[in-house]
Nucleic acid binder design. Sequence first.
DNA 1: GTGTTGACTATCG
DNA 2: ACGATAGCCAACA
Length: 118
Amino acid sequence: MASGTRPSAAEKAQAAEERRQRIWQVIHAIPSGRVCSYGMVARLAGLANGARQTAWALRHLPRDTKIPWFRVINSQGKIAMPEGSRGYREQRRRLKAEGVTFNDSGRISSRSFWWEGD
DNA sequence: GTGTTGACTATCG
DNA sequence: ACGATAGCCAACA
C-alpha cells in the first residue's frame, strides 16, 4: 500500500543490502560439485532480472569470504571472468577439486552439474 | 540528474 | 556454434 511517504535514503539503502544478503544466502546454498548461473541465483533470491546484481555482489566480495563464489558461472556454462586471468584459474581449480569438469571449449562437460534450487 | 560500466542474458543473423 | 545487439539494473563519476 502506498503510504504517501516516499522511501527515505536509509530505507532504500537497507532494501539494497537485503537484496545482497539474499543473493549471498542463495549462493551459500549451492551444493558442492554443482554450479548455478548468475540469473538463476538472482531468481532464487527473488529478483526477476537481477543477473547483473549477482555479478556486482560477487565482484565486491572480500578476499577472505566464505561464500562459494566459484560455484557461480554464466548461462553458457562458462566461467565469466576473462580466460587466463587469476580469478579464472582459481575458479576452475576450485570447481575441479569438487568434481566439476570442463570441455575444450571452456564449458562444463555435463548438464548434470547445474543446480536449480531444491 | 545524466551518462557510463559491468564476473549478465535472450535473441537474431 | 559464434559474434553482434538490445535489454536489464545497481553503483559510480
